[in-house]
Amino acid sequence: MSLKPTPVSRASPNRAGATLDAFLRWREASIIVVAILLTIYFQAVNENFLTSANLETVSQFIAASAIIACGEVMLLICGEIDLSVGQVFALAPFLMHFGTNAGLPIIVAILLALVACGLIGAINGFITVKLRVPSFVTTLGTLYILNGVTLTLSHGSPVETGGSEAMGNFLGASPYAEILWAFAAVAVMHYVLRQTRWGLHTIATGGNLIGAAEAGINVARIKIGNFVLTSVLGGLTGILEAHRIGSIDPLAGGTTVMFLAVAAGVIGGTPLAGGSGTIIGALVGAIVLGVLRDGFTLQGINAYTFDIIIGAAILLAMISNIHLGRLRRGGGR
């Protein structure tokens, strides 16, 4: 029996054409080009851009959204989203603080805080999967609840992080600590997505929910697991940021960091539709957002203008993803 392939016709007139063709086919290509062009531009208009002092600032802009984006991308791939992760970010360092105040070693306090974050993720997942509330609504609800809980527990005022200096450095206070955490998270999650059953089943769940279930995949476990993952990453990021800044602020994180993380994922090439996505792309998306923010700050552009630029960047990235994606899939219209 011979079933002929559907013609995937695409003429590559020459070598250069073929190379360009291969490059366009590479998922993260467009966003990497954008990141490089932006860096060249900002260095051209301001020679202070590529100095180590400024790179440190850029890395701090990038790290938080990159780590959280690792979770959001997994959720987007399996067809869900978590709007509440920014509030988990704010709550986690307070939980750690209460733990250390109660006399626990800081490592134990952090682990307990992360377990609590995982539980919050499990609740988000349970309500979404078992009670069938769309995750957009579930996590909008928990967003408000968690915000209220954090404000109540903290009486609305910041506290010191405390702990030893070495621990503080490890957890984000030393110049490049947080971006190293971000690279580690990206490396691990890229591996999980591309090289493990968990990643494959996450893609299958988002790509064909019923089909995945018919193949015997426990789709509820996959979704709930990715909610737990996202919350834990959100809590970890909150703890890292608190150590970087040296204080725990009940208003830290919030929807700003959550939307930056989702934007990083989307700009990096993860569609909201589910079934596909990239962790590396999300890192590059976070880099683009960090470079934009820092570059325009150096140029003296204010925060209001920055929002306009971010919005335009998201739209441009989406439009190019959709159209380059079409090219990638074989030139069809």
Partner: peptide
């Protein structure tokens, strides 16, 4: 083989054949 085939469009032939 289910009526809807239970294949995942975005995954390769090999990954689909060994799904789960």
């Amino acid at each position: 083989v289910y009526q809807d085939l239970a294949l995942v469009g975005g995954l390769s032939v090999a990954h689909n054949m060994f799904l789960n």
